[in-house]
Design a protein around this nucleic acid. Sequence first.
DNA 1: ATAAACCCTGACACCAGTGTCAGGGTCAAG
DNA 2: CTTGACCCTGACACTGGTGTCAGGGTTTAT
Lengths: 120, 120
Amino acid sequence: MKIGELAERTGVSIRSLRYYERQGLITPLRKANGYREYSALAVETVETIKLYLNLGLSTEEIAGFLNCVLMKKEAFCAEVMPLYRSKLEDIERQLLQLNQIKSNLEERIASIQQEQKESE
Amino acid sequence: MKIGELAERTGVSIRSLRYYERQGLITPLRKANGYREYSALAVETVETIKLYLNLGLSTEEIAGFLNCVLMKKEAFCAEVMPLYRSKLEDIERQLLQLNQIKSNLEERIASIQQEQKESE
DNA sequence: ATAAACCCTGACACCAGTGTCAGGGTCAAG
DNA sequence: CTTGACCCTGACACTGGTGTCAGGGTTTAT
C-alpha cells in the first residue's frame, strides 16, 4: 500500500509517517518510481508506535526496542522495563512540579480574593 | 548597577536579563558607553519576574501586567485574575493527561511482571 | 492528451527560554 | 600601556513532532 492509504488507515499524517521512517521506526520498500510501498504489517507497526508515543516515549526510545516487541511479546524485550520505570519517574517528577505550581496559583488566587473582600 | 551585578544579585543569567529586556519586561537606562544601568529597584523587578515565571506564565503574559503589579498590589491589577484562572485550567488539564499516562505505564509494568511470573 | 489526485525531497516555522560563540568596545589596576 | 575583567550586538543551537510550502515527478481516468 502507498503512504496515503497507510495514513488514512492509521490516522497518522503522511508527514509523520515519513518522520518515523527517518527516525528508523519503519522502513518501507521502494517502487521503481520512488514511491514507498508498505506491507500490510505496517498498519500494526504504526499502531504500535502510536501506543508508545502515547506513553510519553520519544521516537528515539521507541527505536531501541520496536523491532523486539514487533517480534516477541513486550515482556520479553529487556529494554522495555527500565525505560518504563524511568519514564514513570519522569512523570512523577513532573506531577510534583505541576502540583507545586498549582498550589501556588491557588494560594495567590485566594489571597487576591481575600484582599478584594477586605477592601470592600 | 551594571548587568553583571544584577545577574549576581538575582541569580538570573546575563543572557536572560537581556532577553527579558527584549520582551519588554525591564528597561534599564544606558550609559554613554552603551552599558546598561539598572536602578536599585531592578532587583525587585527581576525577583517579581522570576516569581511569575515560576507560576508557569510566559514572558509575554507577564509583560501584560508587570507594570501594574510593580506599582500597585497584585489584587488591583485586573489582568491578573483571569490569567491565573486560565493557567490553573491549563495545569489541571496537564495533570489529567500526566495521570492518565502514569496509570497506563503502571498497568503495563504490572502486566509485564505478571507475564514474567507466569513463565517461570 | 490533459486534469486531478497522488507521490517525492528539502526546507522553514513553531514553542520559549537559555547557552554559547564570534567579533569587538571599555574600563580599572598595575 | 598593557592585561584582565567587564560590557555590547547578533546569530546559531537546542527540544521534537508536526504543519506547510515550493518545486517537481507519476499515475489514472476521462
